[in-house]
Simulated scan of single mutants.
Amino acid sequence: MYEYFNEPFSFKLDLTPEQMLKVIFEYTAKIATEKKLENVLVLMSNMGRDMVVADRCTVWLIDAASNELFTVVAHGIGEIRIPYGSGLVGSAISTGQPIFIDDAYGDPRHNPESDKKTGYRTKSIMTIPFRNNQGEVIGAYQAINKLTQKQSFSTQDMDYLTLAAAYSGKSLESIMLHQEIIETQKEIILAMGNIGEGRSKETGNHVKRVAQYSYILAAGLGMSQVEAEMLRSASPMHDIGKVAIPDAILQKPGKLTAAEFEQMKEHCTIGYQLLRKSKRQLLQAAAIVAWQHHEKWDGTGYPQGLAGENIHIYGRITALADVFDALGSARAYKEAWPLERILQLIKEERGRHFDPQLVDVFFEQLPLILEVREQNEDLFETE
Rank of each mutant, 00 (worst) to 15 (best):
A228T: 04
T58Y: 02
G308C: 15
I101F: 05
V53R: 14
G106T: 06
I188S: 10
A104P: 01
G299C: 11
L217A: 00
K36T: 12
T122C: 08
P98K: 03
T16V: 01
R316V: 10
N46A: 12
L177N: 15
D55A: 13
G48R: 00
I175D: 04
G119H: 09
R280K: 14
F100P: 06
Q97K: 14
Q151M: 13
V137D: 02
Y84V: 02
H206K: 14
Y272E: 13
I82V: 14
V73W: 02
A74V: 05
L190S: 09
L221T: 07
A259C: 09
T118W: 02
G220D: 08
Q149A: 14
N111D: 15
F25W: 04
P236D: 00
H293Q: 10
H294Y: 04
D360T: 05
L221Q: 09
Y215K: 07
L217P: 00
I195R: 05
I101V: 01
Q149R: 13
V289F: 12
K186M: 11
G76I: 10
R373K: 15
K150T: 12
N46F: 09
A54F: 03
L327F: 07
I93A: 06
Q357R: 09
G106N: 13
L61G: 08
W297P: 00
V40F: 10
F130P: 00
A285W: 00
V359R: 01
T300C: 07
L358V: 03
A65Y: 04
P367C: 08
L43V: 08
G90Q: 00
D14C: 09
E260Q: 15
Y213L: 14
I24K: 11
A307Y: 10
D239P: 01
Y84N: 01
S278K: 00
Y141W: 08
S66T: 14
M44Y: 00
L306S: 05
T33D: 13
I82L: 11
R81P: 14
L13A: 12
K123L: 12
G78F: 01
S45E: 10
E229I: 06
L172I: 12
S91V: 12
T71H: 01
G169W: 00
Q357N: 12
H294I: 04
K12D: 06
S224A: 07
A330S: 12
I99A: 11
D298K: 03
W337E: 04
G106Y: 01
A319R: 05
R121M: 10
E202T: 10
W60S: 03
E187Q: 11
I24T: 12
V372C: 07
I313T: 05
Q142Y: 05
A290T: 04
S45A: 13
A336Q: 10
W297L: 08
I313S: 04
Y272I: 08
E348N: 08
D107F: 15
P253L: 03
E340P: 03
P112Q: 04
F25D: 15
E183R: 15
W297N: 01
S86P: 06
Q365T: 07
Q344N: 13
I82F: 04
Q149W: 11
L256R: 10
E197Y: 15
R316E: 07
H75C: 07
P253N: 07
F70K: 03
A228N: 01
